[in-house]
Nucleic acid binder design. Structure first.
Lengths: 109, 109
DNA sequence: CAAATATCTCAGCGCCGATTGAGACACTCC
DNA sequence: GGAGTGTCTCAATCGGCGCTGAGATATTTG
């Protein structure tokens, strides 16, 4: 909690590392280029899997793998197209994304 | 840029994945528990290496390894203690941390 | 100068996670 | 029902990153 350096260097043994589990969990999700691109694409509205695959240059099953992780974290959710239910669109859960952003801001902001 | 699903599903081939290189670079740094703990500890003011090692439960050379990466990214900088220059304290570069936070907020915020 | 202290560097090992490939599943159209 | 399409799952592989250990560097002390 001290801001200045001590005159004589001393080891503060009572310092505790804060809980960063939530922040590292979110950061690990965003640290991947494909997942980050997906989140950025979905910021402009829903996309279907094949569109995200084309936009990122990744294969569709790979994009699907990453979407599963984002889904498990609650950051995105699937929407079946009601005209042709083979197509799965995804949209961001903005509340969850905002919570994720908050836990990161606590570290860097 | 569309917010609604098309009536007939179509593949938008013109969608481009935005540049997320900076965000993923920052996220990869924060995704590690030790580095995240270091950034959190330094938010309260300068710490020396051995204090951060004790607070995180990591060995000092390991903490030093992680500090080297944070240093290379410009997020922290070392301060030699002027009383005993063997002790190296570290402090955050708040401007750099703010820029890092901004690039993450562009993805999630 | 020698010993002790605090930190740094780096090669090597081990593990986690991203990508791939094959197949399964869900849905539509004929 | 069968073929075709879009997506999903998962085991296997492969590469990159964190941890470790040994040694080097820098500084202080006797």
């Amino acid at each position: 909690m001290r801001t200045e350096l001590p005159v004589i260097p001393t080891v503060r043994a009572n310092l505790r590392a804060p809980d960063v589990a939530e922040a590292t969990r979110v950061a690990a999700l965003v640290a991947d280029r494909t997942r980050a691109s997906i989140l950025a694409l979905l910021a402009n509205g829903p996309c279907c899997v094949c569109e995200m695959a084309a936009a990122t240059g990744e294969r569709e099953n790979n994009v699907s793998n990453h979407l599963a992780k984002l889904r498990a974290a609650g950051l995105v959710r699937p929407i079946r197209h009601q005209g042709d239910a083979r197509w799965v669109y995804y949209e961001r859960d903005e509340a969850a994304c905002a919570r994720a952003a908050t836990s990161l801001r606590r570290l860097l902001g």
